[in-house]
Simulated assay, not measured.
Amino acid sequence: MTQSAIYSRVVGTGSYLPARRVTNQQLADELATRGIETSDEWIVERTGIKARHFAAPDQTTSDMAVEAAKRALEMANLSADQIDLIMVATSTPDFVFPSTACLVQSKLGVTNGCAAFDIQAVCSGFAYAMATADNFIRSGAYRNVLVIGAETFSRILDFNDRTTCVLFGDGAGAVVLQASSETGILSSALHADGSYSNILCVPGNVNAGAVQGEAFLYMDGQAVFKLAVKVLEKVAHEALEKAGLEASAIDWLIPHQANLRIMTSTARKLDAVEKMVVTVDQHGNTSAASIPLALDVAVRDGRIQKGQTVMIEGVGGGFTWGAVLFRM
Rank of each mutant, 00 (worst) to 15 (best):
Ile49Arg: 04
Thr266Val: 15
Ala32Arg: 12
Gly204Met: 06
Arg143Trp: 09
Ile6Asn: 02
Ser181Leu: 00
Gln105Met: 11
Gly12Ala: 02
Ser265Thr: 14
Leu200Ser: 03
Arg46Ala: 13
Arg327Lys: 15
Ile6Arg: 09
Asn135Arg: 12
Val44Ser: 13
Val235Asp: 05
Ala189Leu: 00
Glu233Ser: 11
Lys230Asn: 08
Phe97His: 12
Ser106Leu: 04
Leu253Pro: 06
Gln178Met: 10
Ser15Arg: 15
Val10Arg: 00
Gly113Trp: 13
Leu31Ser: 06
Gly109Met: 12
Val280Pro: 09
Glu151Lys: 08
Val66Asp: 12
Glu214Thr: 15
Thr47Asn: 10
Lys230Thr: 10
Ala189Val: 00
Val11Lys: 00
Asn144Arg: 11
Val202Gln: 06
Asp193Lys: 06
Asn205Arg: 15
Arg155Asn: 11
Ile199Met: 14
Tyr196Gly: 13
Ile199Asp: 03
Val104Pro: 13
Asp63His: 12
Asn207Arg: 14
Arg21Cys: 07
Ala80Pro: 14
Ser91His: 02
Ser154Met: 08
Val166Ile: 15
Asp251Gln: 07
Gly169Gln: 05
Gly12Arg: 02
Tyr7Met: 05
Asn77Thr: 12
Val278Ser: 04
Glu45Thr: 15
Phe153Met: 15
Ile119Asp: 02
Ala65Gln: 07
Phe319Trp: 09
Ala236Met: 06
Met263Ala: 13
Ala288Trp: 02
Ala192Ile: 01
Phe117Val: 06
Ile199Thr: 04
Gly140Lys: 12
Ala76Ile: 11
Asp301Ile: 08
Ala294Asp: 01
Val224Thr: 09
Ala76Tyr: 06
Leu325Met: 05
Asn198His: 15
Lys269Thr: 05
Arg300Trp: 01
Ile254Thr: 02
Ala80Ile: 01
Gln25Phe: 03
Ala267Gln: 05
Asp40Ala: 08
Cys201Met: 11
Thr309Trp: 00
Leu232Val: 09
His283Val: 11
Leu167Ile: 08
Met75Ala: 10
Asn285Asp: 07
Lys306Gly: 05
Lys275Asn: 12
Glu45His: 11
Arg300Lys: 15
Ala51Gln: 03
Asp81Tyr: 04
Lys107Asn: 12
Thr286Tyr: 03
Leu325Ser: 01
Asp161Trp: 09
Ala72Asp: 06
Met1Ala: 05
Gln212Trp: 12
